[in-house]
Design a protein around this nucleic acid. Sequence first.
DNA 1: AGATGGATAAGTGGATACACAAATTCAGGT
DNA 2: ACCTGAATTTGTGTATCCACTTATCCATCT
Lengths: 223, 223
Amino acid sequence: MAVNSIEPLGAATAEEEAYRHIQHGLRTGRYRAGDRLIPEEIATEIGMSRMPVREAFRRLASEGLVVIRPNRGCIVAGLTVDEIYETFEIRSVLEGLAVRLAMPHIDAEVLEELERHLDRMERASQTGSSDWVVRHQAFHLQICQLSNRPKLVRQIASLHVGIEPYLRIWFDYVDKPLSARAEHEILIEVMRSGDAQKAEIVMRDHIVETAPLLADFASPGRR
Amino acid sequence: MAVNSIEPLGAATAEEEAYRHIQHGLRTGRYRAGDRLIPEEIATEIGMSRMPVREAFRRLASEGLVVIRPNRGCIVAGLTVDEIYETFEIRSVLEGLAVRLAMPHIDAEVLEELERHLDRMERASQTGSSDWVVRHQAFHLQICQLSNRPKLVRQIASLHVGIEPYLRIWFDYVDKPLSARAEHEILIEVMRSGDAQKAEIVMRDHIVETAPLLADFASPGRR
DNA sequence: AGATGGATAAGTGGATACACAAATTCAGGT
DNA sequence: ACCTGAATTTGTGTATCCACTTATCCATCT
């Protein structure tokens, strides 16, 4: 009988590998806004032909991470100030929804785990490594996943990827030991209270307040 | 001097044509949930090779409209009941955000135009043609566009495409002259009042209330 | 007769090859 | 010296080709 296999059994395909490779480059800042992504370079780098790379480009493009202009190739899509604000606006309502839907699944154990996420985040911020960004994402996504809404989680995760480079730049710029733990403790607090409506509002505010911090590091004008 | 051309100047590339072709097929129900999409068939049908078609598949997959399983091809992604509800939940917060942000740009002229959209929607519903679905979408997207948030609009539009087949099935199923005009007049009403907060809430409720109507037409279980 | 295993066909994923478009460079003219 | 325009080079977009996986069908065995 056909086994009901969970989707990614090995991430076999070459396109998938190219996709992960490029996304990693985008997140860590190896590929910067405005950079041209040359299929051949990337292909030889990970030992495949241009084809899977180009297919990966399409996916990345439809997630807004790169821009493909006909006959002019693929460039990394930097975010303008407006687009950074827009991304945070969208995140605020999506993650607000997520935390509201997650509330019924919040229990003591979950709250403890979230605390541990904050521990790791704080520790990373002290070492100065921009692992802080990764830990911060993990905290937010953890909450989102409790909503039990796969599409919602995917969309939010995609938005996080888009702003990750700017978070890293910002983190490297500000003087190190800022962990923003207090702001996130507030979230845990309201989740502990059990008030879903309020949790949504707090999450929204939390996210919207973050946007202005990154605005200074936006990419200039139009591509 | 390099002209600052707006993006789609002619929709030149073959991949774009394939993308549009397939998306149209998905929206109108030519390709139904679970159907297999065979690259060669589609390629010959629109007079190109399989490659651009495959690239189009990637984009459609990342928008959730199709599912690509390694070595097993591309099938149309039906929405389960849960996924339909999820889509409407996401739409509710995104379009709620959109209408809130649109409020400063609402004036008498815009309201008139929205009324005309409803006129067309009502007329289409009377003729029984499922143009109603298109008109209904146009009304919602018109509001979203006034928010002046391109990414937000794109995401919402993509969600609309995903549920369009189910709206059409539902429309063909219910007895014809239902236009849902009243429900949408309420939206215009609150927009006229100028209260952005309230407009967001009304939009949210409006959308969430729609979901259960479609639930009966969902695709069965997991792929 | 039903189930199981293997042969065969179909179709996907990936690589190479080729035509064409765009960018760049260099030469000539103003 | 700067601008203009043509040739070259670079790189994209598409087609064809090949290997390999998956599905189908039939024969054989229990």
